[in-house]
Design a protein around this nucleic acid. Structure first.
Lengths: 214, 214, 214, 214
DNA sequence: GATGAATGAGCTTTCATTCAT
DNA sequence: GATGAATGAAAGCTCATTCAT
């Protein structure tokens, strides 16, 4: 009974995840995951996240999608451009998801909770593969690429700041609180495994929410 | 008022920073910073922190201490072993500092505050150069090296856990709270610059303390 | 008289030397000598034999085939793997030649004579470049590579043992006799030059045959 | 009973082995094995034989005698000079042993037998450590060193040639027969282990003697 | 768009050798 | 004679990138 209720409750968000991607692809904001370029970006997201950018070779990447390393440069000008493209895809998808999550939230507190959970899902579920790279591999980008990604990221961060302000989080300026949250949340990648029976993403969301709200 | 009181309080611990290192060197727990090996480790800590481990070459390292790249392998068997050695020095020094800071704290709340401030100082001041590597370059270590460092790290983490328990932090299990703090604090490396007039380390400590205590 | 008879007898086998290689290449047992990999192996065989494995650098090898050192690792994973590949080519070709030579022999005595001559040709003529490496550089192989080559070598050695048994050589067990022959024959590389007018390969074969048969 | 008989029979040759070395040292023909230089040469003989010259580092050598690598160059000008010195020691000792063995032989056949056995003992027993290097590492010497060693070797080879001539070995010129023997005997290093119960050095000597005599 | 071969700069590492102490 | 630190040339190898086919 619990499961069917859950299925009902999750169904719309599950659906909208696919629908979201579809809509973004149609708008030209996201690369079609089924296209060669899309499969490459997906593989890159996974490998960069697992092994790190510097420890992933172009050959690894090519092998992952079943082509030869030389062929990669028909799609991207350089390895760094792949990282940049991954980050742009990541932030585009994460933004859309977060906007949708924040809009559905009733009260300010729920909004913040939704932000936390949305980012945790981005990091730990298949929702936004490669999300943690935004933090861990930031320095592997050239300055130009950093600026490009930052521009795309603005909307995403604005949703967060609004939520923090509305929830009246303690700890000083909202930007500071957000930065602490960025660190705390992104680091969960290296220790939190939602498969463990002990702690689910909603559970973890609760704990973090409890800490960061008055 | 706050600042002058703090100056008085910190003076002795500032002094003991040099004494601490001296004592640890004499006990054989730390490499003499004046020795060739010590100078190499110091330079490595700085460069690995600034540029990242993979982006720092052995030649960079050698140039920094004024020797040739081949000479490095007179002191270390591999580049990875340098990283491992840096981390062990880092955790040894940070442990000693934190123990001393925690012991001097009066009440449980002050103890937690001391821990936060000690780690922030480790990250941002000359106190423990290379501290942030512990988090950012963890995956650059072999598994064997990770185990070695983890063993040394146990005492350090125990102090933290004790402080979190005593301060009755909200947010679930102490280990979970600590992990969120690890992320939040280590990430400050990439955005917080104490030289900015706006925010000092004690100020930042206050904010974080406020968030993580009831 | 002797020489003209021999010329007649050898003509077909000389022809089949090229045909042999062609056939082995088609069966996938030998690398095409015209391919990049094949040219590399050929150059390696020559250099390893002349200068020794340790004294030949990867850069020497690359220069010999007109590429850059890095390009070698497009074809082989390591220098040692090149040595291993050379030995496998060598034993494959030598096996085919010896089998053909042994089959054409009339009586048991002629069979042993054919084995001796075939191995001497392998060592001293263009027949099987790099043959002597099998003995002189054996210890430069890893244990895994040694096993690989040994497996391939079994057939070759079996032909020898059969010939020794059939010829009723004195001196104890056939395996022992073969080992003495391995040493005696491979060492000829360092002193016997067939270009010297004095002694031809058939002459040398005669002498050795005389010693090792009753 | 057998053992005591053997002890009696071997005693003189055992004694003379030590006495031989002592005499040679006193005459200034051999380095005192107890001296630092002597211990270095002994270690080098062992390591060069086991691992090969190129695969043995100066550090290995130094470690073996308990000094640091830099100190080696107080005794020898270069690594190659160590190899050369080892070979000179080896051929000096081997010459003396062989002369003594040949002189004690009664008939021509026994003389050849004594030569074979003496060389086998040099290779496989503690009699002349490093003997096999003379063949396997010949190419690691500079031409100057080769000439030096060759001069010393002349007497040794002359004893062999005399024995081969006297024994009326088949197989052509005595020099040719000797070269085949050099190859066959030196190669035994890589397969014959006298510790095996199966085959002793006298046994092996018998087999080889049987092959090389009419 | 893909392939396979090659590039070439630069990497970590090795090691015989030197030398002030 | 020994030490330990350093040298410096050269080694094996890596890898993003190029390009003719």
């Amino acid at each position: 009974m619990r499961e069917s209720a859950q299925a009902l409750a999750e169904a719309p968000s599950q659906l909208s995840s696919q629908q979201l991607i579809g809509a973004l692809v149609e708008q030209g904001l996201l690369t079609d995951p089924a296209s060669p370029r899309g499969r490459l970006l997906f593989a890159a997201a996974r490998l960069f996240e697992q092994r790190g950018f510097a420890r992933t070779t172009v050959r690894d990447l090519a092998a992952e999608v079943g082509i030869l390393s030389g062929s990669i440069f028909h799609h991207f000008a350089s390895k760094e451009q792949i990282l940049c493209a991954v980050m742009k895809e990541v932030i585009t998808l994460a933004s859309a998801r977060m906007r949708s999550a924040a809009e559905n939230a009733g009260c300010p507190q729920e909004k913040l909770r939704a932000c936390i959970q949305s980012e945790l899902e981005a990091i730990h579920e298949q929702a936004v593969p490669g999300f943690s790279i935004l933090v861990t591999e930031w320095r592997s980008l050239t300055e130009e690429s950093q600026e490009e990604v930052l521009r795309l990221r603005e909307e995403y961060e604005q949703i967060w700041l609004d939520a923090i302000v509305a929830a009246k989080c303690p700890g000083g300026a909202p930007a500071l609180v957000r930065r602490l949250l960025v660190g705390a949340l992104s680091h969960t990648y290296s220790w939190f495994k939602p498969r463990n029976r002990g702690l689910s993403i909603p559970d973890l969301t609760d704990h973090i929410f409890q800490i960061f709200t008055p």
